[in-house]
């Protein structure tokens, strides 16, 4: 862990994306005008922004550090599953069907006699790809459209709200059967696309609501009175004040999306063999839970840890963006 005071160093301030950048740059130059401070960084001296303060906070927040480490670990095994599980997840021996743990096979075997450990490690890629990409897609699309609807209002809002109503009306399972059964691709992308398509209206509604709330505040009026344009108002005033509920809903949705992929796979329209995913394994194991609970335990545990890590991360980010909680 770095020293708390190192947030004051210029490289870091400049490294902050977006809004903070310009002020920080100004500060770096202004610093030279203030003599006699020596090497002691004075917290009152260098202008900071919400984002640099948030980052400074996050790095010292154990919840953030732990969840970030878990996510980094999951991403690494999703990219290089061979690094910790060198076996072939599709090499199965039906003679060992539903056997318990054995040397070299710590999690036991599933119904097909495949190694549960190898399948769990190799399943991370598909599940995390679906979860992260679908959440990112739905959050970006829904967040953007919802924020614009809330901000600009009028016919744009009416149009968007009606469109999202249409998508809300589509039953997920039925929609999945219809849309995905015509797809022949064996990649995860059709599933991701489908989940984004049905998932964005939920985020859009949340985003629209919180933008509408933030828009009422006098500081938005004050910015307008200063001559600020819509882009500046949205990015600097409304977004930071409206993003918290979206983060919460999106991180919870991530878990839902991974299980949705499992449901679709179970119905035969989601990911198809030979793709390995937690969802496929969970749904096939769930019928055998009384005979061989270990089959369900490991992929479901991996899924739970992943979802928990993302929810904790979202929570930590949300708290860091609220100065009142510091």
């Amino acid at each position: 862990m770095p020293e708390p005071s190192s947030a004051q160093n210029p490289g870091e301030a400049v490294g902050n994306a977006g809004a903070g950048g310009t002020m920080d740059l100004a500060a770096t130059e202004a610093e030279t005008l203030v003599p006699g401070r020596g090497g002691e960084p004075d917290p009152g001296d260098r202008p900071r922004s919400l984002w640099s303060d948030a980052w400074h906070d996050l790095r010292r927040n154990p919840v953030f550090v732990i969840s970030a480490l878990i996510i980094v670990f999951l991403v690494v095994i999703a990219i290089w599953p061979q690094s910790i599980a060198s076996g072939n997840p599709l090499a199965c021996d039906i003679n060992k069907s539903q056997d318990g743990p054995a040397p070299g096979h710590p999690f036991g075997y599933d119904t097909q006699g495949c190694d549960v450990y190898t399948r769990t490690v190799h399943g991370a890629r598909a599940s995390i790809t679906v979860g992260v990409c679908a959440t990112a897609g739905a959050a970006l699309l829904g967040g953007l459209l919802g924020a614009l609807a809330g901000f600009f209002g009028g016919w744009w809002d009416a149009l968007l709200s009606r469109i999202s109503d249409v998508f809300f009306g589509i039953p997920i399972i039925l929609g999945g059967l219809v849309f995905l059964s015509v797809v022949t691709s064996t990649t995860v992308w059709p599933v991701v696309g489908f989940i984004v398509l049905l998932g964005w209206p939920q985020i859009a509604r949340i985003a629209r609501g919180s933008v509408l709330t933030a828009k009422q505040n006098d500081y938005v009026l004050a910015a307008r009175a200063l001559g600020a344009g819509s882009t500046r108002i949205l990015l600097r005033h409304i977004l930071p004040n409206a993003v918290a509920p979206v983060i919460v809903v999106a991180t919870i949705a991530l878990g839902t999306y991974i299980s949705l992929e499992a449901t679709l796979s179970f119905l035969g329209v989601g990911l198809r063999p030979p793709t390995v995913s937690w969802g496929i394994d969970i749904s096939s194991a769930s019928t055998q839970i009384r005979d061989a609970p270990h089959m369900l335990l490991w992929p479901a545990g991996a899924l739970s840890v992943t979802v928990l890590a993302f929810i904790m991360l979202g929570d930590a980010v949300r708290d860091a963006l609220d100065p009142k909680l510091r």
Binding site: D53, N217, Y219, L221, A222, L226
Partner: peptide, 29 residues
């Protein structure tokens, strides 16, 4: 009337960002 998620420096400095001709960048702080 003050954005709760902006520092006082950012709040008072915002007019200069919107009207950059009023104060040169290095002078704003």
């Amino acid at each position: 009337s003050l954005n709760p998620r902006m520092t006082v420096g950012d709040i008072i400095g915002e007019p200069f960002e919107i009207h950059p001709e009023v104060a040169p960048k290095g002078d704003r702080a």
